[in-house]
């Protein structure tokens, strides 16, 4: 990066660190922070959508739909995250490949499971064996996002379901008295009012989601935890221009600060959002705001 980085062993401390912290591996480390932020940015809205659908299904008057919603919430909430992550990622990948295999290679006669091997034809591989490495990495990332969304969607569904039930019955009765159809009541009266009841639960969930992002590491994605461990490990002079001892503690300390900063910023933003949502609501918070203004 800098012109003086030719021979790091001759540099004094400040310049040595300037070179060390900007070498190729460290740039990959910094990129992995973006990976985590991207995961959060995609997973949060998708999980919320899953949650909304789940909650709608759970309170549906059609029995099969309601059972489907309720069992989604119960099953996913009841299984440990890690078990679900490890199982689901492999199962999802193999399911995709199995379907593609059936469609793309109909005249393939060999069994798909041969002993412990899972073999589909080359055209059905996902991503294709010939695809460049970034495609493989993106695919793994997408599978991770889907899994995160399903898991956190179930928790969000439960929170939203509770939020919907917390809206005062009188509000809905009034809407019906005005002649609104059930659909109108739902979208115009229930949904706008439920957020204030759901937000404490959802903000909690968001915090848990931030803290759950190191699970990416378990799925074999090279996230910040992977790089912190790799970069912090002892480096001997034979294999690097920047030999150092075991610095894992400092790298993990940096991660700790990163996560604390993330949750602190979220807390502030969520508090503001709560204030806005409370405005004009028939809740204790809304009443307090009204009194303070009056």
């Amino acid at each position: 990066m800098f012109s003086f980085c030719e021979d790091p062993s001759t540099l004094e401390t400040a310049r040595w660190f300037a070179c060390y912290l900007t070498n190729g591996v460290h740039l990959q480390f910094y990129q992995s922070f973006l990976k985590v932020l991207l995961l959060l940015a995609i997973t949060a809205p998708v999980a919320l959508a899953f949650g909304f659908l789940g909650a709608m299904a759970a309170r549906s008057r059609l029995l099969p739909l309601s059972l489907l919603g309720k069992s989604y919430i119960a099953v996913v909430r009841g299984v440990p995250d890690i078990a679900f992550f490890l199982f689901f990622v492999i199962a999802l990948d193999q399911a995709f490949e199995y379907v593609r295999h059936r469609v793309l290679c109909p005249d393939w006669t060999d069994p798909i499971r041969q002993g412990s091997d899972f073999i589909v034809c080359a055209q059905a591989k996902l991503p294709l064996g010939t695809a460049p490495q970034w495609v493989h990495e993106t695919y793994a990332f997408v599978i991770a996002v889907i899994t995160f969304s399903i898991v956190f969607g179930a928790f969000a569904a439960n929170v939203l379901y509770g939020g919907m039930r917390a809206v005062p019955r009188a509000q809905l009765e009034t809407a019906e008295a005005y002649g609104m159809s059930p659909r109108q009541t739902f979208w115009r009266v229930l949904v706008p009012q439920m957020w204030v009841f759901a937000l404490p639960g959802l903000s909690n969930l968001w915090m848990v989601l931030i803290k759950a992002t190191p699970l990416l590491f378990l799925l074999g994605i090279q996230d910040i935890v992977y790089w912190a461990r790799e970069l912090g490990g002892t480096k001997t002079p034979n294999f690097t221009a920047y030999p150092h001892g075991d610095w894992r503690m400092w790298y993990f300390l940096a991660l700790l600060i990163f996560y604390l900063a993330m949750t602190k910023v979220s807390e502030t933003l969520l508090e503001r959002l709560m204030k806005r949502l409370t405005h004009g609501q028939a809740t204790t918070g809304g009443e307090a705001q009204r009194r303070a203004a009056a």
Partner: peptide
């Protein structure tokens, strides 16, 4: 052509056999 790209799996944490260099 499908079969011609071979993906080589390694650990990248066991010098001198395999490791990640300064360039990543």
């Amino acid at each position: 052509a499908w079969a011609d790209t071979v993906r080589m799996g390694t650990e990248g944490a066991y010098p001198p056999y395999n490791f990640i260099n300064d360039k990543g």
